[in-house]
């Protein structure tokens, strides 16, 4: 399936969860916030949030800023 992750079309395994996506890329789940199809996904729900074809996913974190 194709999921748009941070604006980029990404090929993902069917049924993959948000948590699995992050772990596959060594991204600590407690350091990010996710927005799936314009809805915020609580960190506790990452593991049970199954991604679907055509989803738009944003994964964000804090960076330096003034």
């Amino acid at each position: 399936m194709i999921v748009v992750v941070n604006g980029k079309e990404t090929e993902l395994r069917d049924g993959q969860t948000l948590l699995e996506l992050l772990e596959a890329r060594d991204i600590p789940a407690d350091g990010v916030v996710a927005e799936l199809n314009r809805s915020i996904v609580p960190g506790a729900d990452f593991g049970k949030t199954v991604l679907n074809d055509g989803d738009h996913l944003e994964v964000l974190r804090f960076v330096g800023g003034g």
Binding site: E58, V59, L60, F62, G65, G66
Partner: peptide
Amino acid sequence: ITVALRRVDLESGTGNVM
């Protein structure tokens, strides 16, 4: 202290300002 919010770079891990 201020911080900004940005997209995570999914290809290459970077340091975490936090």
